[in-house]
Write a protein that binds this DNA or RNA. Structure first.
Lengths: 214, 214, 214, 214
DNA sequence: TATGAATGAGCTTTCATTCAT
DNA sequence: CATGAATGAAAGCTCATTCAT
């Protein structure tokens, strides 16, 4: 018995059970993204998600309180990951140039919406409803995402390259709205007439010209 | 029965019955706007709408095929009215100046979203879902609304005052998205930090600078 | 049209619709008694009651708020009827003699439990649980029923034929408990070894001797 | 493995394992009494009982076949203990006087219902249902408990101090019912208006006068 | 023995839609 | 045209029980 192979090294505080748990939580979220994108939140049945995740219906309730909780968790976790990604990208590719930063942000957002079509669809379709009907959940991650944009604007204004009379709180919504409405087209009709880079540049060009001091 | 009073004169093609019918149709649409804005489409019950419209549940099915049909009709009719309004306004207030036209469009859109809060909420929350789940209905009116913007852009490009490399099909979505995301803030938190005019100008300024030739 | 027969006289405030409604309410209560007696409240499904009452599942919710509400209504209504019955009987058969009254009460209670076996079973099995878990409902009718007994005792004490040191509030529970536990035997094993009259007399004899002054 | 310490001496037929087993069996029963009294049998979850007993859910199934089995075991074991107690008490305190015996029985029953409120509640609420739905289990202990009363009556009749025409089988139910319905009041509203002794005496007085020859 | 994650059958309740009046 | 009582399909969620470890 002592001869049975045992792991020589175990990550401290990360048991097999925890791995499995994390595994199932993730599996359910991923399944939910697929199902929600296919049928929408309201038409999606718990049974659909369970089937897609290859678990029993009841298992879902070991990881989430209810159907809404799946949606909210999905939002917060996925947007959380996106925030990390885009921040990393801004650091590594945009230097200290706010114009470059807007460009990077726009390209990343559109690329993401294109690459992860199913997630995009869920965000596009369900985020608005949720804000209204699940007030208890604040969708804090989403705010955080928008605040990256206003942060860039403020930085540009401090550097004197963005017009100081532009309100960052208004700009962030306008910029995000412009990108998101554009991406929405792709969700509805998957083949885009222009390339992602082209579209991202078009939009960023307008906004940068619009906000530049000169 | 023959003795019952009948209208001696009838507008051709518009009988009393039709007026009454139109009356109830409108009453139900208005009720639906209020109920959908309060509870969202999925949580709204036909019984809620019937109560709000002061008709019996069954009466609704004399004017609409089903619950979805109410939503679609609501979209098409209300957006139809908005299109008429904004076109009239563009004619009367913007002359032939595309810059002025964008300004008028933006102000009108935001003012509308502010004035008709309940309608705004329904459009904000339900339009996206519907696009996906009711493909049979094309939401043609919505496309028509967006095309007003691209029309303005094209006109400006022909006049040589807007940069020719801006794609009108991209611009229309960006501009609408910027306005709509901004208006969405008000739906969620009714008191706006800045005035509507201020906000409309901020956004239009950015876009006009962004698209201007020079 | 004026020649169509119309009811010449209509009971004020009792429309056809109201009769139908009362009808269905009663049908559901009766069905519930049968189903609850057969399977017990917890094992009884709404679908069972609906089937037994020959209505759709949903119809039940037009008349009752939920499953508990059926049980509570059943209690209050049936015990209400029993109270009326026994009061009438006491008036007509017991004169002013409290001893006779106890006898009438006992016989009536046991006879009822024997005649309406299904109702008896429901009261026997569910009344106790309900008192505990549905505190919001006070089971006021049941208290009223018990108070008939204490009323008789008080009357007997005023007339000087019952011992004044007997507490009516204790006696009422003891007397009712004695009768009800006895009746419970019949619910469990339907064939009684002794006749109802014999049993009723046995019990009443003991209690009357026990409470008589002399 | 053979080197593991083993008890050098074992009580015949009572190994350490059996003691541990008995231990857990008892712990679960005690937990079940608390949980059933709090929530009722149907609303109580196995998980609740497991938590209360500080064992895992699955462990319960090592000691009981199913949820019903816990309830039945609880009944039989607890009533078994009560029978032993009351028989001991009758021997030690009532001598050969059947009147005294009834008095002792009544006081003991009421005192028990007052002292062990949680057990009382479970017996009050669940015993009746169980009789109906778990026919396979005969609740033999409960019959045995009632038969103590009829035994006393028979003894009194043999001694000529109780009226011979009273049927012991009827009397036992009446007496028990009277006591139990009285105790039920306490379960529902914990503060009793009269002392236990007073109440026990009131009831026994009535029954003894009622059954005495004279 | 002991554990507790996983299972999936089961049921109350809701509500869009129908239709007899 | 108008009514609203009746319908019954549909689904979220619970929890007793199992079983791999």
């Amino acid at each position: 018995m002592g001869l049975l192979p045992r792991p020589l090294f175990t990550e401290p505080g990360l048991s097999l059970a925890m791995i499995r748990t994390a595994d199932k939580h993730a599996k359910i979220i991923e399944a939910a993204i697929r199902v929600f994108s296919r049928k929408g939140f309201f038409h999606a049945r718990i049974a659909d998600i369970a089937k897609e995740a290859q678990v029993a219906d009841g298992t879902i309730y070991l990881y989430f309180n209810n159907k809404y909780d799946i949606l909210i968790s999905l939002f917060e976790e996925e947007i959380g990951k996106i925030i990390l990604e885009v921040k990393l990208l801004l650091d590594s590719e945009a230097g200290d140039d706010p114009r470059k930063m807007l460009r990077v942000f726009a390209l990343h957002h559109l690329q993401l919406m294109d690459d992860r079509r199913e997630l995009a669809e869920v965000l596009q379709m369900e985020l608005r409803q949720s804000n209204k009907f699940m007030r208890e959940y604040r969708l804090t991650k989403f705010s955080e995402y928008l605040d990256i944009i206003s942060g860039i604007v403020k930085q540009g204004q401090q550097q004197g390259i963005f017009r100081p009379d532009v309100l960052p709180g208004v700009f962030k919504r306008a910029f995000f709205g412009a990108l998101d409405e554009t991406a929405r087209l792709w969700v509805l009709s998957p083949d885009h007439p222009y390339s992602i880079e082209e579209t991202a540049n078009q939009i960023t060009d307008v906004f940068i010209r619009g906000i530049n001091t000169d």
